[in-house]
Amino acid sequence: MATVENAPRHRSVGSAKLREALVAYAFILVPMGVFLLFFIWPLAYAVYISRYDWGVFGKIETLGFENYRELYRDEIFHKALKNTLLYTALVVPIQMALGLAMAVIVNAGIRGKTFFRSAFYFPSLASSAAITAIAIYILSADGLLNAIIGGNRPWFGDSDTALFSIVGLNAWTTSGTMMLFYLASLQAIPTDVYEAAAIDRAGAWRTFWKITFPLLKPGHFFVGVVSVVGALKVFDQAFIVSNGSGGPNSSTLTAVLYLYRTAIGDIRFGYAAAMGIVLFVLIFTVTLVQRLLFGRPDTA
């Protein structure tokens, strides 16, 4: 008697679990589909075509790993990588420092804090192409900057200053976004820790460096990763200020810009794809290293 009564209940529990699982999968299906279609598929496709000489209408010649070997010897690619790494090494600390500073200011509860928050974030919202176009005017030989500080150096036209000018430009536009991330992390720090520090006679500076800064570890990690990945992929500004050439003297030629020039100018999609794969591996590795170094945040 007991077993007969138990049996239906047992079965319905199992099928309820199955139904739950199916519903879960159904929900994931769409975003997963998007992810596969727009991220995994192009990546796999890029790996595929990187082994060929690939033209407008497809396969021209099978090259195996020749594209990668050529990349190894390609001194322009090396220059592009160097430019990109230099750019990243400069822009990331600036963005992080500025973003953190702005977050601290906005969080301090000063008057007009909403205004500052909007003002700091605005450059990130505006179109990067529009901002770059304006920057070209401001930084031209007879532009606003030179009118203020004197001299007639064409900032984007001089191979010594072009890349650094892009660093400054991007630091200004992207710091606002970093500010938002830091702000979220900042507000996650419980206030009583600050109260304890105040009673423990910590001044503003010590409180910032010994309490706030270490407790922002999740923020540092996130901002760091986002910053580095974004910097390694820089393209827009380099393209616009150099008119697509990566000049002067390839000083603004970033890895992605070179990839673009190879694809559009030389119509060597396979070679460009190989570049993309190398860049992907580079970014992936850097992110992994960051994860290992800044991984676990402290809680409690």
């Binding site: 419980p190 009583d192 820790v193 109260e195 304890a196 520090a197 105040a198 009673i199 423990d200 006679r201 910590a202 001044g203 309490i211 270490p214 407790l215 570890k217 402290d298 809680t299 409690a300």
Partner: peptide, 19 residues
Amino acid sequence: APGARDVAMVFQSYALYPH
């Protein structure tokens, strides 16, 4: 300021420095 009063406080949530 709290730091100048030479008092020590034990908070309900302990408020330890987590890091």
